[in-house]
Simulated assay, not measured.
Amino acid sequence: MSRNFDVYLPLERAYSREAMLAVELLDAVTLERITQGVEVTATGLTGKPIVNYGGLFVWLKEDTTNFQTLLVEPGPRPFERVEIPAAQVNRPLHTVELKPLANYPFSPGITAIRGSLIESVPAQGVAPVPIAKATIRLEWLDEDGATWKPSPATFVTDKDGDFTFILRLAPVQVPTLDTLGNMSIRLFAKRAAGAEKHQQFQLLQGRVTDATYAWDQLQ
């Protein structure tokens, strides 16, 4: 009795086909490739992607003239939805780091902030007013005690003002730590209208911190 087997294309061939698009999905926390549980769509292309042996989503023998948007729907997985205009997609290979939601199962040793940005601290019994679509970025204090280093990542608050920020340092990057293992951090929030404010605080390295930031208390 014959049996059907999955057929995968070699990784090196994923880049070499003419008029083709390849997409690499990475977990922004672990940097591992994601191949299952998500839906990847390229609007304007007639075919659907296949996952090759190397873990890339590839469209083969496609005319990309009508390519409009790259969409990544995470489904039940704890990542943000991604929508990228075709003009911003690198070809033939584009890498997307999927950003975690607040319910992401962080492993020990990860430095991250599960935060909320609101207008002001509300009175008891009053719901806070969230600030949506604000861009969040961080700076950390270098071991020299004087130089503030920017984290390359940025995150955007959702409709509820929530965001999850991962602070990932290279082995050669060494922050200033106090006796409790806290890093000195500057968090910057920039509203969609353009105004930016910040707050400086201590953040425990290697832990996930839950915090709420009120716009009227930022500097």
Rank of each mutant, 00 (worst) to 15 (best):
M1H: 11
S2D: 12
R3M: 13
D6R: 13
Y8I: 09
E12T: 13
R13I: 11
Y15S: 10
S16E: 11
A19E: 14
L21M: 09
V23D: 00
L26Y: 01
D27H: 04
V29R: 01
V29I: 05
T30E: 10
T30K: 11
I34Y: 00
G37Y: 04
E39F: 02
E39A: 13
V40G: 06
V40R: 03
T41D: 02
L45R: 06
L45Y: 06
I50S: 12
V51R: 04
N52W: 04
Y53V: 03
G54P: 09
G54S: 04
G55V: 05
F57A: 01
F57C: 10
F57S: 01
L60P: 06
L60N: 06
K61V: 04
E62F: 05
T64F: 08
T65Q: 13
T69W: 07
T69F: 00
T69Q: 14
V72W: 07
E73D: 15
P74E: 06
P78E: 07
R81Q: 12
P85S: 08
A87D: 13
Q88N: 13
V89N: 05
V89A: 07
N90W: 00
P92F: 04
P92V: 04
V96F: 09
K99P: 01
L101D: 05
A102M: 12
N103K: 08
Y104N: 08
P105A: 08
P105L: 11
P105T: 07
F106W: 02
G109R: 04
I110C: 10
A112N: 05
A112M: 03
G115E: 03
G115K: 01
I118L: 07
V121Y: 13
P122G: 02
P122L: 08
P122C: 12
P122Y: 03
A123I: 04
Q124G: 08
G125F: 00
P128I: 00
V129Y: 05
I131N: 06
A134H: 10
A134C: 06
I136V: 14
R137T: 15
L138F: 14
W140P: 02
W140R: 00
L141N: 05
D142H: 15
E143C: 09
D144Y: 04
T147K: 04
K149T: 14
P150G: 05
S151T: 10
T154L: 07
V156A: 03
T157A: 11
T157Q: 10
D158E: 05
K159V: 10
G161W: 01
D162G: 07
D162Q: 15
F163A: 03
F163H: 07
F163I: 08
I166G: 05
I166N: 07
I166A: 08
P171T: 07
P171L: 01
V172P: 03
V172D: 15
V174M: 12
P175S: 04
P175I: 04
P175W: 02
T176K: 12
N182M: 09
M183T: 00
I185R: 01
K190D: 00
R191H: 08
R191Y: 05
A193W: 00
A195Q: 14
E196F: 03
E196I: 13
H198N: 12
Q199D: 08
Q202M: 07
L203F: 06
Q205W: 00
T209D: 07
A211W: 11
T212I: 13
W215A: 04
Q217G: 15
Q219N: 15
